[in-house]
Design a protein around this nucleic acid. Structure first.
Lengths: 325, 325
DNA sequence: CTGAAAGCGCTTACAG
DNA sequence: CTGAAAGCGCTTACAG
């Protein structure tokens, strides 16, 4: 493959001049520019981006940490990130971690090794203290409430979200409510449990551990939860399903098992996926895609301005009444 | 950030030696290795990957061309690609094209500019003739039958797939069949139309253009198709929905509109998504995830062996009987 | 407007 | 086992 030197020789100019026309610098005479362009054409030349990246210290790429691609709930921020990145001329390296801490670190190492200009963590398993040091190597944005940590974040307030769902249920008279959560002990789960506990306390009900289902953010999990609920006695009268996928699996399977929704079992889903509309599932609407979009915008600004500043951006949540409560 | 020279100075060795220990070359005395490692630790050093990529001429990254991330049917190959790539130590740059030809070319340019070692095209809009020249810059694998083109491919035979579905329907006595397709005029659509036409001809039925629905590979599209079918007279007795998403939208919405499935309308879905199981949709099962997996394996081999050879790998298809026919 | 030269940070024959 | 040196392919002050 031709390099800049060959172009320079063929065009009868210096490599400096070649570089100038390649980078659209002003101050190049028309005839030299033409000569360079002609040589570029003849030799089918393009820049070697690795050399450009090396010398510029930037790559116009970011990395995205994602636990699993095949879970629509988890991967929805990626849609927002990708569409924003596209517009800004950024490429995104999608890194699936399967929630393995070392994998997360490997991605952060990419930042340290200058392979990417920034990182968005959609969901993490490492402690803040192991993530924070990497801020020294470049900007990082997380898609969860980072509290008082000096990390920028775009997020949905899971406390508010679950509180909204639960208060709606209690207002309808439900007292025995089950919940579908993500990983047991995850930051999000802790926050959600807190919301559930308090909203139940407001109606003098305790949180019953046996009604909390973990690792239940997929359609498959919804199906399984339906079976477990069907066999319970006493049985909760309502479920706060963690995602639309869970809710869909739950509603469809519960009906197959002979439970009437909402009469025997009320169900509330989350997010704003088409699936919820299709099955007419009452839901707390919140857009993870918008979370991703906001996260990229922040990250992009940090890269462009070359300075980082911990900010927080909370995205809205609202209850949409449909037919499953 | 420290560079290799500083490490060399601090450790009292040459940069050659530093490079050796960094790259785990043999023939480095224990004490020098220790000295280097110590300096690396003290200076918090890591390699600048851009320099490594430049000099090696490889990046351990591949690019994936994808029309839309938010369409589960289209994005399913990515799951397979990502999981395989992870195991081989490759990173994947996910490039959403929205079916814009220039965007596709931009991705191929990444190959030319050495930003990635190879490209997988899950779905394309450019002609073979514009894609093929890029083979000069690195390996490319496509996720569709490339026919006699000198391009490697991993794919599902859409002719066989649609034929399987349609023959099942005609065997059950259906004569009036509608179909949900992708983009009108796309390669896949042409093949599918061909299969439909022949399978119908086998029972002396013509293909009716008004029963062919295009851009119908999403749940939303399934919902819309349900409405259009509900208003038709005469109405087809069966539909070959292009994907599980389409089938799900179609089945759920048709029922809302008072159509009985399968009595008034039989539906066959495709792929092997959980959704199909959940709604108990009869389907032609085929795994796009496996397509992605196979595509990466081929690409990886070409990169590792540094030679390209056009191969074809067809993935299996089988009909799964459920309740919607 | 233009070019010689230094430099980005690494790897790798080559010679010892 | 080790190092000086060339080279990967570019950009960018600097001086003219």
């Amino acid at each position: 493959m031709a390099n800049i030197k060959e172009i320079a020789r063929m065009a009868g100019v210096s490599v400096t001049t070649v570089s100038r026309v390649l980078n659209r610098h002003p101050y190049v005479s028309e005839d030299k520019r033409a000569a360079v362009l002609e040589a570029v054409r003849k030799l089918d030349y393009v820049q070697n981006l690795n050399a450009v990246h090396l010398i510029k210290g930037k790559t116009s790429m970011i990395a995205v940490v994602l636990p699993y691609v095949d879970n629509p709930y988890l991967s929805s921020p990626v849609e927002g990130i990708l569409s924003e990145a596209n517009q800004c001329g950024y490429r995104v390296v999608l890194c699936q971690t399967n929630y393995r801490p070392e994998e997360e670190l490997n991605v952060l190492e990419m930042l340290r090794m200058k392979q990417v200009d920034g990182v968005i963590i959609t969901s993490r398993t490492n402690d803040w203290d192991v993530i924070k040091p990497y801020l020294a190597y470049g900007p990082i944005v997380v898609c969860e409430d980072a509290g008082d940590e000096p990390l920028s974040c775009a997020y949905i307030d899971h406390y508010r979200s679950f509180e909204t769902g639960l208060r709606y249920l209690t207002a309808q008279g439900h007292r025995h409510v089950a919940c579908c959560m993500g990983r047991r002990g995850s930051n999000t789960s802790l926050v959600r449990e807190h919301a559930v506990r308090e909203a139940l306390a407001a109606v003098q009900e305790p949180l019953r551990p046996e009604w909390m289902f973990y690792d239940a953010l997929s359609m498959e999990a919804g199906v399984e939860v339906a079976h477990r609920l069907a066999g319970m006695n006493p049985r909760p009268t309502a479920v706060l399903a963690g995602t639309h996928q869970t809710a869909a699996g739950l509603v469809a399977e519960a009906r197959k098992l002979g439970l009437r929704v909402p009469d025997d079992l009320a169900v509330i889903g989350f997010d704003n996926h088409m699936l919820g509309q299709l099955l007419d599932i009452t839901a707390v609407e919140q857009s993870n895609k918008d979370v991703g979009r906001a996260a990229f915008q922040m990250l992009h600004r940090y890269i462009a301005e070359d300075r980082y500043e911990a900010e927080k951006q909370e995205l809205p949540v609202r209850l949409v009444e449909r037919s499953t409560v």
